[in-house]
Design a protein around this nucleic acid. Structure first.
Lengths: 110, 110
DNA sequence: CAGAATCCTTCAGGATACTG
DNA sequence: CAGTATCCTGAAGGATTCTG
């Protein structure tokens, strides 16, 4: 018998686990257009708290999706950019974007 | 039951909100192969509680992704199947599946 | 068989203030 | 500017029992 914690996740679940949280897909979407600073993300992701933004970025760095670039300046200048692995998510994001748009159109017709 | 008075979400976030919860994508994946009964889903989604399964299905029915078919029998025979809208999620699920597989391969090479 | 009812735990997310 | 450090709340998820 396999414990739940050890239960192998299917490929779909792996993806959900990595980018399924509230803000991660939006962060990736923002980073697709190029590296961004903390303050830029905080502005474009209207509504995210600083804590959650940091936590999301840290988690994505650990997962190898995002890279943190420290320009070693004072005052601090740090940028976040997608790794090649992060960029490989583009088809997923795009599929989700297209479907979300499609769904909203369906919703209007009810 | 449906809270639609939230701030406008981008298309990507719409999709995440609809299928981003822990079990929904897995339910859809299971239903892609045809209608399933409650007990079948409860078995194939190893680890899900009855409450969460019901809640997920109810939510997906409200969102128009899943249809509940009552055969009006005793003992009860009820099946859940994807609506056309639910089936339209196939490309998203497939993109996530492919990427999840890709990610796990990357992970092994580190 | 399907799933409603109950009670409980966890934690993602949020608000705010502070620091190098 | 780029974060920590706290404290807090609600929602998601879970375990178990009961019922038509």
């Amino acid at each position: 018998m396999i414990k739940k914690e050890e239960m192998p996740l299917c490929d779909v679940a792996t993806t959900v686990q990595l980018i399924g949280s509230k803000w991660k897909t939006l962060i990736i979407r923002d980073l697709i257009t190029g590296p961004k600073r903390n303050s830029e993300l905080h502005r474009s992701l209207a509504g995210v708290s600083q804590k959650v933004l940091t936590a999301s970025l840290t988690s994505m760095i650990e997962d190898g999706l995002v890279e943190r670039i420290d320009f070693e300046k004072v005052p601090p200048h740090i940028e976040y950019q997608l790794t090649p692995l992060g960029e490989s998510l583009l088809p997923v994001i795009e599929a989700m974007r297209k479907w979300g748009q499609f769904y909203k159109e369906q919703d209007l017709r009810r």
